[in-house]
Simulated assay, not measured.
Amino acid sequence: MSQLPARNIAVFGATGSIGASALDVIARHPDRLRATVLAAGSKVDALLALCRTHRPLHAVIADATQFDALRTGLRDAGLDTQPHAGEQALEDLAASAHCDTVVAAIVGAAGLPSTLAAAKAGKRLLLANKESLVLAGELLMQTAHDSGAVIVPIDSEHNAIFQCLPDAHAHAGLKRIVLTASGGPFRGRHRAELGSVTPEQAIAHPKWSMGPKISVDSATLMNKGLEVIEAHHLFGAPRESIDVLVHPQSLVHSLVEFVDGSTLAQLGLPDMRTALAVGFAWPQRIASGVQGLDLLQHGRLDFEAPDLDAFPCLRLAFEALQAGGTAPAMLNAANEVAVSAFLQRRIAFLSIPALVEATLDALPATAANSLDVLREADAAARRHASAAVA
């Protein structure tokens, strides 16, 4: 087997859970992988701690008010790491010669500009930022196609599909993509039981350790809805060829069905390091630190249909994908506002899908033919949802 090429890696969202997993895998292969750029939103102390461990060439704090603290901290630590601040620095470094691989793990719409910059520069893009595809999927995929960028999705579900669809020939016989969902912390509950759930209950995910926003999205099944839209863009699958199954063990990460009756699935323990190792090394394989799957120990695999009455966010996402244009961007924007309001205890759990649906009903979808149009749709949806919360 040929040797894995050396990779200089930018980790955007370095202080989050995906960033931690990425840096763990990188540290296991010091001869081939190096974190050359680390970026965080506002957690300057956590970023400085990572810089002391990984000694990158560059460190970026998106919150420009933290620049002095970053610069002083790097100097006091005796590091040669260059400090940067602001969104433009993220874009510039994503496109620069200081990295050939970018882990795009900034949460929310804030991750879109640097993700697009990396794609335009032809990088290997390990994509964990859902919003880049939900807001601007056609634009991102076209940009990557034009530049020769390689996109490896890092969501466990899309990474599973990526592994099951290794080449264009497999796509020719593709019949159906089936995304699996854990069901979140409220699986099995009826709608009437969800009216009084708290933010603490919603972010207590049974299988995955994630940030609060993504954890709430998992509890509402919006996370799965966004993944449906992502799968459409990543794999060129139409709405009618994408299904969702609830699989509480989170061991089958997704399935791909072909016209000849074959179904391929990717299985593994629920640990992001597997998908990241695939992203860094593909088409080769490297150790990720994750143990193999002992099916005898786990004993059984269960599957059930999602409950769209209790969890209407998944239905809304399918409808937004069907509507096309700016609808997915508005879905995502309204959801971000609603989830933030829920985490601040300003609205109830069931108000999240209600707010999203009301926003989509109020703002008809238009053609999404430029980033400016998408940004305006995003802003309009945020304004509408924010007014409804207030």
Score class of each variant (00 low, 15 high):
Ala231Cys: 10
Ile203Pro: 00
Ile151Asn: 01
Asp155Leu: 08
Ile154Val: 12
Leu264Asn: 05
Ser241Trp: 10
Gly183His: 12
Glu257Gln: 14
Gln201Ala: 14
Gly173Pro: 01
Lys175His: 11
Ala219Gln: 06
Asp271Gln: 05
Leu226Thr: 09
Leu245Glu: 13
Pro248His: 08
Glu157Met: 04
His232Arg: 11
Ala265Glu: 00
Glu193Tyr: 09
Gly173His: 11
Met272Ala: 02
Thr198Met: 02
Thr220Pro: 10
Val150Ile: 14
Val228Leu: 06
Leu276Gly: 00
Asp155Met: 09
Glu193Thr: 05
Pro238Cys: 11
Pro270Leu: 03
Asp155Ser: 08
Val278Tyr: 11
Leu226Pro: 05
Ala231Lys: 03
Leu221Gly: 03
Trp208Ile: 06
His233Arg: 09
Leu269Arg: 11
Glu157Arg: 07
Asn223Cys: 07
Gly236Ala: 09
Lys175Met: 11
Glu230Ser: 07
Leu174Ala: 12
Val246Phe: 08
Glu227Val: 10
Ser218Glu: 03
Ser250Leu: 10
Pro166Ala: 12
Pro166Thr: 09
Val244Leu: 08
Pro238Tyr: 15
Gly268Thr: 01
Gly173Met: 05
Lys175Ala: 15
Cys164Asp: 12
Gln266Met: 13
Thr180Ile: 13
Ala181Met: 04
Ile229Trp: 06
Gln249His: 12
Val197Arg: 02
Glu257Asp: 15
Ser215Leu: 10
Val259Lys: 15
Ser182Gln: 05
Arg191Gly: 09
Glu193Arg: 07
Lys213Cys: 08
Pro153Leu: 01
Val278Phe: 12
Arg239Cys: 15
Ala160Trp: 05
Asp167Gln: 12
Val278Asp: 07
Ile229Cys: 15
Ser215Ile: 10
Val278Cys: 13
Gly211Ser: 14
Leu165Asp: 00
Ala202Leu: 01
